[in-house]
């Protein structure tokens, strides 16, 4: 079947299998940041935004996304450079092997959109959606809190 949707700001018309999820579909389109960690909804490495909310791409039927706007980590950096979440992750050492990073960024993007000033506990709760086997989560949590602060400053100025 054919679906129309928007992926990272670009209108896309594509053929999908009716039982296919967003994970293989988006990777086929070239979005290599959408990682296949478990294909089981456990690890969060495939997190993308569907109409602004972060979901597990491996559990979201591609056909359900018809008419939706999908955002992957590939769209985070803009003409002004890296997104504050990316800058903070690099500056604070939140990226080690990097496999879980795109998913963490997308989960954090959703969190900060609805809660611009989260507590550390809230950030920890949200990042429980994303497995990270390298960092022990300490640095990603610090990076999200730092990015939140950067985003609030941007908003205020």
């Amino acid at each position: 079947m054919k679906i129309d949707l928007t992926v990272d700001g670009m209108a896309v018309t594509a053929e999908v299998d009716p039982g296919e999820t967003l994970l293989p579909f988006l990777r086929r389109l070239g979005a290599a940041s959408v990682k296949n960690g478990c294909d089981n909804g456990d690890c969060g490495a495939c997190a993308v935004l569907v109409d602004g909310r972060a979901v597990n791409a491996c559990l979201f039927f591609a056909a359900k996304a018809a008419g939706s706007e999908i955002t992957t980590a590939e769209a985070l950096a803009g003409a002004d450079g890296l997104h504050p979440l990316q800058t903070a992750s690099l500056d604070l050492g939140a990226v080690q092997c990097g496999f879980c990073t795109p998913g963490i960024l997308m989960t954090a993007l959703d969190l900060l959109a609805y809660n611009p000033d989260p507590t550390e506990e809230e950030v920890r709760h949200w990042l429980a959606a994303n497995y990270c086997r390298c960092t022990g989560w300490v640095k990603p949590v610090e990076a999200v809190l730092a990015a939140a602060s950067m985003l609030r400053e941007q908003e205020a100025s």
Binding site: G41, G44, A54, N56, L59, T107, A128
Partner: peptide, 9 residues
């Protein structure tokens, strides 16, 4: 129930 990612869907 699950994680924020699951509850969003």
């Amino acid at each position: 129930i699950g994680s924020p990612l699951l509850r969003n869907a």
